[in-house]
């Protein structure tokens, strides 16, 4: 399966598999949601046509660009960079998955396991193949790859009752709620047991509302949302600001 990688200023936000119809836009009913005023409600769509992956602009206000040129309809090539507002989406043809289509019966042998020795030999082969691939991309500009170490986000308490002023979002999933597994504990009998889950995904954090009322930048949080620096979350009265921690720490360490 091919994939689309949504990026903002060189930071990878999320990968999307290309299904039967992927729409890109500002509204929550899109598969790829870009919450930015420069992006139209339904901005563009990506779909399969035969063996080609087609990108089509949905008469957006500010247009859709591929490698810097405006398009209305374009057959995507590996490495193409699509610009929608200020966000870029890189098309990766090689993110293939095995065809789930039924193989002929005769090849349906029993599942076998590679033992440690075979596994090591395989690993060596795969690693050298990877190294070769890395060398060969010099011929042609590869899609930007983010190699920076994983950044850690923090939630700073702006207003409301809490047991800390700041919470590091170090775990895979951080919960905000009354439950004792929550990183950010909400106090009060009528607070939701779990109000919001914030999950790491690559180099970004995705907030999902799970109970009670949560506002983000004074709008209701009603679906998954990638957190951006400066986002203000109001979780049942506790007001938190999302920021990146690394900038501060990298400077003090240097």
């Amino acid at each position: 399966m091919s994939k689309l990688t949504l990026q903002y200023e060189g930071i990878v936000l999320k990968d999307y598999a290309i299904g039967p119809g992927v729409t890109i836009g500002r509204l929550p009913d899109n598969a790829v949601i870009i919450d930015n005023p420069a992006v139209s409600g339904h901005h563009a769509r990506v779909f399969l046509e035969g063996h080609q992956v087609i990108l089509e602009d949905l008469r957006s206000t500010n247009g859709t660009f591929v490698n810097g040129r405006p398009i209305t309809r374009h057959a995507l090539q590996h490495g193409d960079e699509v610009l929608v507002g200020k966000h870029s989406i890189v098309f990766d043809q090689n993110a293939v998955e095995p065809q789930p289509v039924a193989p002929p019966l005769e090849s349906l042998g029993d599942t076998v396991y590679l033992d440690t020795k075979q596994h090591r030999a395989l690993r060596a082969t795969l690693e050298s193949a990877r190294a070769d691939a890395a060398k060969s991309v010099n011929a042609r500009p590869a899609p930007p790859v983010v190699t920076a170490t994983r950044r850690v986000g923090v939630l700073r308490v702006v207003a409301g009752r809490s047991d800390q002023d700041e919470y590091d979002l170090a775990p895979h999933t951080s919960l905000i709620g009354r439950s004792d597994t929550s990183l950010v504990r909400l106090r009060g009998w009528f607070k939701p047991s779990v109000a919001v889950a914030i999950a790491r995904s690559g180099n970004s954090y995705i907030a999902t509302p799970l109970g009670g009322k949560t506002l983000i930048n004074e709008e209701r949080l009603d679906g998954r949302r990638v957190l951006q620096e400066g986002d203000i979350l109001n979780v049942s009265g506790l007001v938190l600001e999302f920021c990146w921690k690394d900038a501060v720490h990298a400077e003090s360490a240097a």
Binding site: S107, G109, T111, L114, H119
Partner: peptide, 15 residues
């Protein structure tokens, strides 16, 4: 590549 398959004896191999 997409759609390509490994030799039959490797098709179902787990690591």
């Amino acid at each position: 590549e997409q759609g390509q398959r490994l030799p039959a004896e490797q098709q179902n191999a787990l690591v």
